[in-house]
Write a protein that binds this DNA or RNA. Structure first.
Lengths: 140, 140
DNA sequence: TATTGTTATACTCTATAACTATA
DNA sequence: TATAGTTATAGAGTATAACAATA
């Protein structure tokens, strides 16, 4: 697969596989799906509306309905009526969701750190610096 | 989501979303699923056995059977009997699979280049350098 | 006996279209 | 009329377990 990508894209795609692997392995370790772990990560910052959650995850609203349903059924999240708009819901973590989100996050970070820590310290600093700058561009 | 990751892992995860988005958008543009495009990318280097393909994609063998079935049904790949082992199959691209693989690859690269090209030239060089080194570590 | 791959089964994930309820 | 979210439906993706054929 590497051969057909130019350098920067090659490496980005290659590393994406590692991040996906970290998410797959970690979520499985805690009896979650990768998508459920994603939800827990997004909600760690606090409850959000379904619309906002869907945009964060790049999902159609009906896809999100199902995902939140399954998360709720597993006791990870709860739907709370929006106090201002009776059509809307906010989604927040349960204690269990908070706990698994923390542990899952830690598992992903640990796996990724295990990889990046093998770089020379100067390279680690450069990696963080350039990636952070690139991530900022992607956010604009 | 950013808030709970330390710098390097944060940016890696954030950029993974961009790569996934590039794959999602591109594959959709060509009427493929992201997983099917992945298969085309792996097979671009030449036919491989089911076992090797499964390892490359980190899939259980039964999952791969289904994925290859659907790719075959769409005319993207063909199964060819292994000449040495009558239990085994090799999977290769059809002309259509080759064509869509090329175009899909180009679409992903174009999207990612559009992002990285916004970095200063010196940063682009640093990005490629460090990411390539990190990818090499992940391959060991 | 061990290995290669498929089948059977059960979920999860996702999108499109149609719908309900509220704004 | 427009928006927030759900339901109905269909297909894709994945894993586990049991199985067939070959080594």
């Amino acid at each position: 697969m590497e051969a057909i990508y130019p350098p920067a894209a090659t490496a980005l795609v290659r590393l994406t596989h590692e991040v996906e692997r970290a998410f797959n392995d970690t979520s499985r370790e805690f009896g979650l799906t990768p998508q459920q772990l994603q939800v827990l990560c997004v909600l760690h910052a606090g409850p959000v509306g379904m619309g906002e959650l869907g945009r964060a995850l790049h999902l159609e609203k009906s896809s999100l309905t199902g995902l939140v349903d399954r998360c709720e059924r597993r006791g990870l999240v709860v739907r709370i009526r929006d106090s201002c708009d009776r059509r809307a819901w906010r989604v927040g973590l349960t204690d269990e969701g908070e706990r698994l989100g923390e542990q899952g996050h830690q598992g992903v970070v640990t796996r990724l750190d295990k990889l990046t820590s093998r770089l020379a310290p100067a390279d680690q600093a450069r990696l963080t610096d350039v990636l952070t700058r690139l991530a900022a561009l992607a956010d604009e």
